[in-house]
Design a protein around this nucleic acid. Structure first.
Length: 561
RNA sequence: GCCCCCUUAGCGCAGAGGAUAGCGCAACUGCCUUCUAAGCAGUGGGUCGCAGGUUCGAAUCCUGCAGGGGGCGCCA
């Protein structure tokens, strides 16, 4: 990464100055290399002289940050990626990247292709991202789209950053909700076959249940009516789980979401792991009995003020009991180095308890990150919509995708940090205009593709044998190269924040940089075949940058629009 | 009542302890015989919620306050 290279150059310059005796030996200062906001302040700048000056002052020596900066700057080698260097303000060293070095990166970007942007800060660490987990009791509410999109894009970003990533959906197929679901399904099924069967109290009233029942009638006929009611419900549970998961899978696939594993909560009971892990905690003194129930003594741990029931007084385990076993399975059985769970803010109360669980399991709580995201409000005609007009029921992910398209959904949900509440304007999102930034980015990509095919049809050379990059001297050409090269740092930032939302902003910036180049530099010009070839290489590099960024976001990069 | 999150231009939002706080929309002004005008350029617009503190330096860190959202179940 460029910033790391700059940092190295600075460290070496500091060491060289000390070796020359021009600077006294001091403790290695914590060098920060940052990107100045101000255009005139270079591509990167460092506070090393100010930090060094502070260290010298501490040891009693007199010091002038600007003088120190001059000495360090004089020891930066003139060849390589650093070009012009200036001292400014209280003692910043402002660094301009070398133009020649920048030009040379164009060919490197084109050569890297799909791999451009990939970095290796993960070093193969094994991470899991769990997202959208829910009861398999029907279609997913549109709010889940945000959860899914955050998790999916984050997983993409982690992979690009050198992590091994497993994407998981936790299927809450144990517990009461799912029993009620199966009982409801039985009732709908019986009704379809003409039997008068009431939907259970607290049952699932949604119309979609009839659809599931219909499928079961088609597949199995009326055989469940001829068996014991409870046995029928038991069999329906398994059958319906398959049905629901299949429809869920097809629904989220509309958003480009995929999973490596669908992990069954019930399997934690079938294998006995839930009680096994509870016994481990009991042996540590983290489990206690009170009021006829069994409790996890969470309040022993920091930031938790209440204990938590794991087994109700009626003998039924809670969701929390299997959740403990689930995380034991993730870390101890499957050995993930780090786990990211994506949850809606309404689950925030659960976060400190999970940290307590980690500690109780003897695991470092920092290995589990829970990304909380705000809720999504749908807006149409300036008003919040809660029900689907078409179906008179809850709005699902599929409904929203059908209305505005997957790309618009993903881009819009990924432009803001996870903690924000989003007002998703359906009218704006569906518009094919600049009001909809995803169109701007995609249009720019399509424009480059059209440029390239146009050049090809005119017989221009798209793959020159020699390095023509030194012809790229225009201000906007250099600016475009710099912007493309930013992708690596943007990926690093998204990993640090465990949120990909900076990438949507970056995609817009990159598209903007390309459009400025397109405006000021004639690319396809038969009268100037050599310059054209150089600019076509740069266009190709810009296309790769845009495409790779969109791919990380899970958004398509159309070749024509 | 206790805990968590949010508060940045008219609106929607970025902002990584650094220098003169950005982007888009909306508003206003220009640019289509020329590679996709779904585009480009320019102008105006700010007590970074308020008050303290830490720091050479704070939108960013700490404390308090106000407004908004969320959470505090033998629910998930």
């Amino acid at each position: 990464m460029i910033r790391d290279q700059i940092k190295q150059v600075i460290e070496q310059a500091l060491a060289a100055a000390q070796a020359d005796g021009q600077l006294p030996e001091i403790e290695q200062p914590a060098i920060e290399v940052l990107r100045p906001k101000q255009a005139g302040h270079g591509d990167y700048s460092t506070n090393v002289a100010m930090v060094a000056a502070a260290a010298l002052r501490k040891s009693g020596a007199s010091s002038n940050p600007r003088a120190i900066a001059e000495i360090i700057a004089a020891h930066i080698p003139a060849d390589g990626l650093v070009g012009r260097v200036e001292i400014a303000g209280p003692g910043f060293i402002n660094i301009h990247l070398s133009e020649r070095w920048l030009q040379q990166q164009v060919n490197a970007i084109v050569a890297a292709g799909d791999a451009f942007g990939a970095i290796d800060i993960g070093r193969g660490a094994y991470w899991q991202v769990e997202y959208l987990s829910a009861n398999p009791t029907g279609p997913v509410h549109y709010g889940g789209a945000r959860n899914a999109v955050l998790g999916d894009s984050l997983a993409n970003v982690l992979e690009a950053a050198g992590y091994r990533v497993q994407r998981e959906f936790y299927v809450n197929d144990a517990g009461n909700q799912f029993n009620i679901f199966a009982a409801t399904l039985y009732a709908r099924y019986a009704q379809l076959l003409g039997r008068d069967e009431a939907i259970p109290e607290d049952g699932y009233a949604g119309e979609y249940m009839i659809g599931y029942a219909q499928t079961i009638v088609e597949r199995c006929g009326d055989r469940f009516l001829h068996m014991d009611r409870n046995a029928a419900i038991g069999e329906l549970k398994e059958l319906s789980k398959e049905l629901v998961l299949a429809s869920l899978q097809s629904e989220v696939s509309k958003l480009g979401i995929r999973y490596d594993r669908w992990f069954s909560e019930q399997s934690l009971y079938d294998s006995g792991l839930v009680y096994e892990v509870l016994d481990k905690l009991r042996a540590r003194g983290d489990i206690g009995e009170r009021d006829g129930a069994t409790w996890f003594l969470a309040s022993k741990y920091p930031k938790v003020d209440k204990d938590e029931v794991v087994i109700r007084s009626n003998g039924m385990p809670t969701y929390f009991a299997s959740d403990i076993a689930y995380h034991y399975d993730k870390f101890v059985v499957r050995g993930f180095d780090h786990v990211v769970n994506i949850w809606g803010v309404d689950h925030q109360g659960h976060v400190p308890r999970m940290a307590a669980v980690m500690a109780a399991l003897g695991l470092d709580p920092s290995r589990l990150t829970i990304v909380l995201h705000g809720l999504v409000k749908l807006i149409r005609n300036g008003e919040e919509v809660k029900l689907s007009k078409r179906r008179g029921a809850l709005i699902t992910i599929g409904d929203v995708v059908d209305e505005v398209g997957a790309d618009a959904v993903r881009f819009n949900l990924l432009t803001r940090g996870p903690e924000s509440t989003i007002e998703f304007d359906l009218d704006l999102a569906a518009q094919a205009s600049w009001d909809n930034p995803v169109c701007y980015v995609q249009y720019s990509h399509a424009r480059i593709c059209s440029l390239l095919s146009n050049a090809e049809s005119k017989g221009l050379n798209l793959q020159p044998e020699s390095d023509l990059s030194s012809l790229l001297t225009h201000e906007v050409e250099i600016a475009l190269i710099k912007k493309i090269l930013e992708l690596e740092e943007q990926i690093e930032l998204a990993v640090e924040k465990l949120s990909p939302h900076n990438l949507t902003h970056y995609a817009t910036d990159l598209a903007k940089a390309f459009n400025a180049f397109y405006r000021d530099c004639r690319v396809v010009d038969s009268a100037e075949p050599t310059l054209s070839a150089a600019r076509l290489q740069l266009s190709q590099a810009a296309r790769i940058g845009l495409k790779n960024t969109l791919t990380l976001l899970g958004i398509s990069a159309p070749e024509s629009m």
